[in-house]
Design a protein around this nucleic acid. Structure first.
Lengths: 318, 318
DNA sequence: TCATTAAGCGATTAAATGCTCAGTCGCTTC
DNA sequence: GAAGCGACTGAGCATTTAATCGCTTAATGA
């Protein structure tokens, strides 16, 4: 699917039906009459509007319990920024819960007047964040990827986050057109020797703001699922105390980066800890608690967007 | 963890229920179990969250037909800005339809870096706009009322718009603490002689951006309903060709301001036509078509937020 | 050209939602 | 202290919405 649906009337109708349903508050029966279609079709249009992410819902009310958790996180880890969304209950997708809040945080930076270099990681959480963003004009900023966009399987899924944001805000964007992990040191050197790539890497290294997801290093670690490391390598890393990973860089419970099989060939730019510029993590879920705690404790991240239960779990261990 | 369990407030629960329903997509049954209340109570909390305006829904899709209308309005009247929302169908409240779009327009200005003086009118449409706004920090701007806040019946409803916006954006705000229409020329002179009031009037006069509603001059004109003019005066104005009113200043079909019984005692500041700064009207509804058309044609307004059917009607008369 | 597959549509049915109506609890007032 | 008032609650019911199924239609590819 292209970013702009080629069939205008299709998703146009869906948007209109969604509008009538969610904003106007009509019943699907009324919508059907309004648009001159069958009731079932109206229902399908409405649910399609929701499925395609045309409908954005935000809640305009700071829930007291979440505010307290934000405060507690900030105090405990000395954060610049903490956002806690209400949880979605067990079993639900945590990304859904934090996406709107994360989008709002990013929009805060995008709304700033002075040009910023905004570096972005990848992953489901960031993808959710982008989908929840509103379109806005922010051409003064630069968007740069912290991570290569050529996956081991050749997929371009890593491309998505930065391209989609750029599309929504019309800002200049710099994906990093090299393998996430080069297969040899020679290949790595060949890519990084290219001036345009060197420039992107340089831009990412001096970003003014960073948004990244946080990966866990359990037995179903994303690094394994995406084919960046083998199961044996994962086991070795676990044995060495790996608890989390940010933009492909693995760290242990103290937040110290570990050498990994691919780290000398990782095209991405690591986040240096304890810097002044905001480095915001977007992550939630029980499996990520240890990873997030370590990243916050070591100052790899100095801001976090998460959900209620994750926040509680992060704070639980004293 | 030192989070003392404060009793979750009423609207806290409502917000949480609304979140679970609209964002998480749980059924009310699941919400009830989650919160440990009866299903009926969950349903009441959800509808309360909606009623209290805690839930903001926006649609992230420019509907083709609306874009065309925006273009047509801009071309026809040489507007800086035109926004057209999908209609809500006959009988529905037009304010509901345009409020989110109007809020987004205002937020565009609020997101700007350089300090702006933003002047605001009153009325239901602006009130809806404010309710649909998200909270944001924009302390660099100044919010000023274009119109006095003391109504003939002493109500403070005119106070609302500017106070509520200021509350949401934390910006300095300047209501105009004098009668909308003073009862005598002496009273008018006494008020305008006061330095603080003169300063507010001056600020409003040199606003960088203006947002106003548009009033119609039919037999149920808001000026009559709010007690600013008598029925006899309304009839006289109608006979003289009055079609609309902006911030209490009445104009005819050519957009020329008319002398009214109160115009020499009107504490508000009229909008001078054909100025460079944005003057955005927020209005929709069949009864307002003539009023909007005249205001746009004469350049009293150079921007409009309206709905589909109103836009069509405005453009219909060639 | 025809078989195969995918997509869309309406009808049916199960689930979820909103509404009304008594009953209850707490509060005020006499 | 009892009656009155009002807001809230839960149950049942009517409406609305979502899921399923069989059918038709369009698209794909040998």
């Amino acid at each position: 699917m292209t970013l702009h649906d080629t069939e205008p009337s299709q998703s146009d109708d869906a948007a209109r039906a969604g509008w009538l349903y969610y904003v106007a508050g009509l019943t699907q029966d009324q919508i059907a009459r309004e648009l001159g279609v069958s009731r079932q079709r109206a229902q399908r249009l409405v649910s399609r509007a929701m499925a395609e992410g045309l409908i954005h819902v935000r809640i305009e009310h700071p829930i007291a319990a979440c505010l307290e958790l934000e405060q507690a996180l900030s105090d405990r880890f000395g954060l610049i920024r903490a956002r806690v969304s209400p949880g979605l209950g067990p079993g639900a997708d945590a990304v859904r819960a934090i996406a709107p809040a994360a989008a709002q945080e990013l929009e805060r930076f995008l709304a700033m007047p002075d040009p910023l270099v905004i570096a972005l990681g990848t992953g489901r959480a960031l993808r959710g964040m982008v989908d929840a963003m509103t379109t806005m004009d922010a051409p003064q900023h630069s968007l740069v990827s912290m991570i290569g966009n050529i996956a081991p399987d050749g997929s371009a899924s890593f491309f998505d986050v930065i391209m989609r944001i750029a599309d929504k805000v019309r800002a200049p964007h710099y994906p990093m057109p090299m393998p996430v992990i080069s297969s040899t040191l020679e290949e790595f050197a060949a890519f990084t020797a290219l001036a345009p790539i060197a420039r992107v890497r340089d831009l990412a290294a001096r970003a003014d703001v960073i948004f990244v997801g946080v990966g866990q290093m359990g037995d179903d670690a994303p690094l394994l699922a995406d084919g960046f490391i083998t199961r044996a390598e994962l086991s070795a890393l676990q044995a060495r105390g790996a608890v989390g990973e940010v933009a492909g860089w693995v760290y242990d419970a103290s937040g110290a980066y570990l050498e990994t099989p691919g780290s000398t060939r990782n095209g991405g730019v690591p986040i240096l800890p304890r810097m002044a510029r905001p480095a915001i993590g977007v992550a939630a879920g029980p499996s990520k608690v240890a990873a997030i705690r370590a990243a916050l404790g070591a100052g790899i991240l100095n801001g976090i967007v998460t959900d209620e239960s994750t926040a509680r779990a992060i704070l639980a261990q004293r």
